[in-house]
Amino acid sequence: MSSSPWFAPRIALSTKRTRVLTIVSFLLPLLIWSAISYLPFLWHPKIKIVEPGDVSYFKINMLVDREVFDKETLKVKEVGKVLPIGTRANPIYLPAPHEVAKAFVTSFTTEPQRRSEQWLHESLWHSITIIFFGFILSSLVGVPIGVLCGTYAAVSRINEPFIEFFRYLPAPAFGALAVAVLGIYDGPKIAIIFIGTFFQQVLIVSNTTRKLDISLLEAALTLGAKRMQLLFKVVIPGILPDLFRDLRILLGWAWTYLIVAELIGTSSGITWFITQQARYKNFDNVFAAIMMIGIIGLLSDIILAKLGKYIFPWERSANKA
């Protein structure tokens, strides 16, 4: 119905509107970026020299500030020499969308400058493995501890106060320590992801566990379930869908620790690529690489969301009702 309002508190939008808005949410930033890049009267604080004229230090393709260009032009004009010609341009750190789009391809096809360096896909893959191992190790320890904390008050009391304290310590602060203990390669990087994820994970999982309806446990008790059965047949299956959602959110957090982790010891992975390209002033490549992280993160979350619907069929039916 076209008459239904766009803004009604907590009311779901129609599928069509949802789709439109999803597209707009990506299109809008792209549009602003394009406008700044392609409309010469918007921003463009620099002048790109096309013809240096008689200004001695101007060179073709050089970027100068507009004021500098105007001043030099005026100087040359006064003495009646050849005027420089230039077009308005954006600073080098803001490449246009089409340049970044091109970089998406060329950064993969460009051979590394030195033999010791890696291709982009190798760097990306290395980043993904760091995230994967950091997150898996954290989950292997954090999820069971979280579930036990949420189930048994005693376990919660002995773990949670310390974890509450520890989670405020910024993970990157352990960088130097991690290098001292684990060397300069992948060890400390995985450790940073672990430290960044683990403590939050225990608290979030234990909270989720505590939110399980206690009457389900009571029902199980009256049906004759014993201690271990309560844990394995009620608590764990009962929280699985929420646990899965928690892990999706935590995986997003793990990505935010990636850049810091990769700067520790020998810089590696996508971070190495980004810093390297920034050094060469290939900002189109830098933008492309940053976006690749976003795309990988978003894609993995979408895949996990779909997977969740598949492995928890009772959740699907609940959503329909």
């Binding site: 029902a219 299956p237 009962g238 009772w314 609940a318």
Partner: peptide, 20 residues
């Protein structure tokens, strides 16, 4: 003493296991 299967209980809030 304690709950057991010799006394069946039906709660107001259904308490069915949603995952089963």
């Amino acid at each position: 003493s304690g709950p057991g299967p010799d006394r069946g209980m039906v709660f107001q809030g259904y308490t069915l296991f949603p995952w089963l």
